[in-house]
Amino acid sequence: AQVHVDGVTYDFDNPEEAEKFAREMAKRKGGTVEVKNDQWHVE
């Protein structure tokens, strides 16, 4: 699973880890999390 944050792509073998990371980053940035094509996007 991939997580996109500020133009940087992070690869995770485990989708749950990807989701956890995406939500944590969004919380830190005060942003939102979107899922597109099985990829997490932190805005």
Rank of each mutant, 00 (worst) to 15 (best):
K29A: 09
D38S: 11
H41R: 08
K20F: 08
V42L: 04
D38V: 04
V5C: 15
A26Q: 07
V3R: 00
H41Y: 15
N14Q: 07
N37E: 09
Q2M: 09
R23M: 11
A1P: 12
V8R: 11
K20I: 10
D11S: 14
F12T: 01
K36Q: 10
K27E: 14
E19W: 06
H41A: 05
F12W: 01
E34W: 15
G31F: 08
A1M: 13
V3Y: 00
V35F: 15
H41V: 13
A18I: 00
G30Y: 05
A18S: 01
W40A: 04
D6M: 07
E43D: 10
E43H: 15
V33K: 02
V5G: 01
N14R: 07
D38C: 14
D38G: 15
V42H: 03
N37K: 07
V8T: 09
V35N: 10
A22N: 01
V35P: 02
A22K: 02
A26N: 02
H41W: 14
H41Q: 07
Y10H: 04
D11R: 13
K29Y: 15
V42P: 05
E43I: 15
D13V: 11
V42Y: 04
E16G: 08
N37G: 14
V3K: 00
V33Y: 07
Y10E: 01
D11F: 15
N37L: 06
Q39M: 14
H41L: 09
E17M: 06
E16Y: 11
R28D: 12
G30K: 06
D6F: 11
F21D: 01
V42S: 03
Q2E: 05
E17V: 06
D11E: 13
E16P: 02
D6A: 07
E34V: 15
K29T: 15
E34S: 15
V5D: 03
A18E: 00
K27A: 14
G31T: 09
W40G: 03
V35R: 13
F12E: 00
E19D: 07
H4E: 06
K27Q: 13
V3H: 01
V42Q: 04
Y10L: 04
E17K: 06
D11A: 12
K29V: 15
F21G: 00
P15H: 11
Q39L: 07
N14P: 00
K20E: 12
F21W: 09
V5W: 05
R28H: 13
M25H: 06
A1Y: 15
K36N: 09
Y10W: 08
V35L: 14
M25T: 11
V42M: 03
N14I: 07
Q2V: 11
N37F: 08
V5R: 02
Q2G: 02
F12R: 00
T9I: 14
V42F: 05
V35M: 14
N37R: 06
W40R: 02
R23N: 12
V35T: 07
Y10G: 01
V3T: 01
E34R: 14
P15Q: 10
A22C: 07
D6W: 05
E17I: 06
K36R: 14
A18W: 01
A1H: 14
V8D: 06
K20T: 10
E24P: 00
F12D: 00
Y10D: 01
G7P: 01
E34A: 14
D13A: 11
M25S: 06
E34L: 14
D13I: 10
V8C: 14
P15E: 10
D11N: 14
D38T: 06
T32D: 05
A22Y: 03
G30R: 05
M25P: 01
V3L: 02
E16N: 07
V8L: 10
D38R: 09
E19Y: 07
R23P: 00
R28N: 11
K20L: 11
N37P: 03
K27L: 13
D38P: 04
R28A: 14
A1Q: 11
E17Q: 09
N37Y: 08
A22F: 02
G30M: 03
R23K: 10
Q2I: 09
K27D: 14
V3F: 01
E24H: 05
E16Q: 12
V8W: 09
T32A: 06
N37H: 09
D38E: 10
H4A: 05
V3S: 01
D38W: 08
Q39P: 03
P15V: 11
V3N: 00
G31M: 10
A1F: 15
Q39R: 09
E19F: 05
V33D: 03
E16M: 11
V5F: 09
A22Q: 01
E17C: 12
N14S: 13
A22H: 01
D11Q: 13
E16K: 10
R28E: 14
N14M: 05
E43G: 10
H4Y: 12
A26K: 02
R28V: 14
K36L: 12
V42E: 02
T32P: 02
V8I: 13
E43V: 15
D6I: 02
M25V: 13
D13K: 10
G31Q: 06
G7T: 02
H4V: 14
A26E: 05
E19P: 00
D11I: 14
N37A: 08
A22V: 02
V33W: 05
F21E: 01
K27G: 10
D11H: 14
T9H: 05
D11V: 14
V3I: 03
E34F: 15
E43Y: 15
A26S: 05
E24I: 05
F21V: 02
E19N: 02
K36I: 14
E34P: 02
Y10T: 01
V8M: 11
P15G: 08
D6N: 09
W40N: 04
E16H: 11
F12K: 00
A26P: 00
K20H: 10
F12V: 01
E24K: 06
K20M: 12
T32S: 09
D38A: 10
M25L: 11
V33Q: 04
M25I: 12
T32I: 11
E16S: 11
T32F: 12
A22P: 00
K20S: 11
E34G: 10
